[in-house]
Amino acid sequence: MTRRLGSGSLVIATHNAGKLREISALLEPYGVKCLSAGSLGLPEPPETGTTFAQNALIKARAAAEASGIVSLADDSGLSVAALDGRPGVYTADWAERQWFEGPAGRDWYMAMGKVEGMLAEKGPDAPRDAWFSCVLAIAWPDGESAVYEGRIDGALTWPPRGTMGFGYDPVFVPAGMDQTFAELDPAQKHAMSHRADAFAKLVSEQFG
């Protein structure tokens, strides 16, 4: 990969405000102005991939083609060892309410409860090891792209703790710590998360 981003505008292919804040904070030191796909009125493409990398590329390429601006997409999720790596690439899907579960949309507390319920079915001695994965995909309007992968290991806790994260953050305790992602100061989380790991690789190649 020889092409480089440089400063300027970058479309973040997300409609998730929490994810936009995290990505914007990570890119701010490099003079990158982040615009969300949501603010530009871009539709969310169907995520038909079976891996994080495939879905990240689908989103980045769709945003780049629709906006004519270099775009960055993140596809990330929680994998639980005792659940054979689930929910994995279907992390967000587990939070989607069915028609009998209330108004349409994502209910992360429900999703966390679903994971905990499946672990409980395996008995009190079931391992609680888990990891977050993140894949960042950059796409240029002419079709060129690049992918960067990150990961952080930890364990699940119950009940959820903390209010500063989003998604499954309130039940994930990073290895070597006793606070959940949602209890950590955002700056501390940004410095160590799966997204930070992927960003370190992106920055090394794109701005190093």
Rank of each mutant, 00 (worst) to 15 (best):
I138C: 04
V11K: 01
K114Y: 00
L57G: 05
A56I: 10
V135D: 02
E28G: 03
A139T: 10
K33C: 13
T180E: 13
G68L: 09
W131F: 14
T2P: 05
M118V: 00
G41W: 10
E96H: 10
P43Y: 07
G150D: 06
L57T: 12
D75T: 03
W99Y: 12
L184N: 01
L40R: 11
D142N: 12
D129Q: 13
M164F: 12
F199P: 00
G105E: 10
D178S: 15
G117Y: 06
V135L: 05
T180G: 13
T163C: 10
L156G: 05
D74E: 15
L78F: 06
Y148E: 07
D107E: 06
L26P: 09
M1R: 14
D169H: 01
A60Q: 03
C134G: 03
E144W: 08
V80D: 09
E22G: 05
T51K: 13
A155P: 00
D93F: 13
R151V: 15
Q54H: 12
A187P: 00
W108R: 08
A56F: 11
L20W: 07
G85A: 11
L26R: 07
A146V: 02
G68F: 10
G8R: 04
G162L: 08
A37Y: 03
V11W: 05
S76D: 07
P45K: 09
A198S: 09
I12Y: 07
I152M: 14
D153N: 13
I138W: 05
A17N: 06
A137I: 10
